[in-house]
């Protein structure tokens, strides 16, 4: 445990020095704050509400950037060290491979959490200054669900990473997966829904295969306390799962965190040759 913590802290330090990480943090923080500021600029009019558009912008931003961060950072981690042969030196120490992987996951997860907390924190300051109507617990819930998404994409990135010989290849695959999850899957599903006349149950089930959609539905549920805004499929989800919806969505997200991490562990330990 001590070794895992040591590796995690070491990984966190390396991340803080990593210019990509700094760039992501700056981008996320600036965009989150900027979007919140802009979308709330009309809210002073009534002293009412007005979180809808901010929420929409934040959900949108998280959907775009957080998986990108998680996937690329995760993809780069093991493969990059393998390329620089720092990985073999690390593994030559009295440490298990599982410990190395878990240490990396925790360290990078902490780094991602720092990025998200900074972004949400600073955006929150702007929101708090402009509008007294945003419910704090919902905002915190959004931050928490975003963190789950970050960890899920980090896990996916680690799978790509342990299976790749070179860092550049891993990042390439990571970017493709990002594109797939963010755009291609949704476009394909929209097309399928219209062309095949999918019923809402099937549409919802297919959508829930995508962790980004799971995040989005959970975020909307947390922010609006209902899924009406997502139309018939959202209502179907509410009707079908009722109170169990949120635990279900969070459970699926947690599965997206742990299952890929388990797969990465299997590959890393079994694959053998470093």
């Amino acid at each position: 445990m001590d070794k895992i913590a040591t590796l995690a802290i070491y990984e966190l330090r390396a991340s803080v020095r990593n210019r990509w990480f700094v760039l992501y943090t700056l981008t996320f923080t600036l965009l989150a704050s900027g979007l919140s500021y802009l979308s709330l600029s009309g809210a002073g009019l009534f002293g009412f509400a007005g979180f809808g558009r901010t929420a929409a912008s934040l959900i949108n931003l998280v959907l775009l950037i957080v998986p990108l961060m998680g996937l690329t950072v995760g993809a780069m981690s093991v493969a990059g060290e393998r390329e620089q042969s720092t990985l073999s030196y690390l593994l030559a120490q009295p440490i298990g491979r599982g410990e190395v992987l878990l240490g990396k996951f925790l360290g990078l997860g902490l780094a991602l959490a720092t990025t998200l907390l900074l972004g949400f924190g600073l955006a929150g300051i702007l929101i708090a200054r402009q509008s007294s109507t945003v419910e704090a617990d919902r905002y915190l819930a959004l931050a928490g669900i975003s963190l789950l998404l970050a960890l899920a994409s980090l896990s996916l990135g680690l799978v790509i990473s342990v299976a790749s010989r070179r860092g550049s290849l891993a990042v390439g695959v990571g970017l493709f997966v990002w594109l797939l999850l963010v755009f291609l899957a949704d476009l394909g599903l929209m097309g399928t829904a219209v062309a095949m006349r999918l019923d809402v149950g099937a549409l919802l089930t297919l959508a829930l295969l995508n962790p980004l959609q799971v995040f989005k539905i959970a975020a909307v549920q947390a922010l609006q306390a209902s899924l009406e805004v997502l139309g018939p499929a959202g209502l179907y989800a509410t009707r079908t799962f009722g109170e169990g919806l949120m635990p279900l969505l969070l459970g699926v997200l947690l599965l997206w965190v742990w299952v890929p991490l388990g797969v990465a562990h299997l590959i890393f330990v079994r694959e053998g040759d470093v």
Binding site: N60, F183, L187, L198, L230, A233
Partner: peptide, 16 residues
């Protein structure tokens, strides 16, 4: 026209 597609609201695919 296809209300079920509201499910994709807030997704980046909307802007696309």
């Amino acid at each position: 026209r296809y209300p079920e597609l509201r499910l994709f609201r807030f997704s980046p695919v909307q802007q696309t």
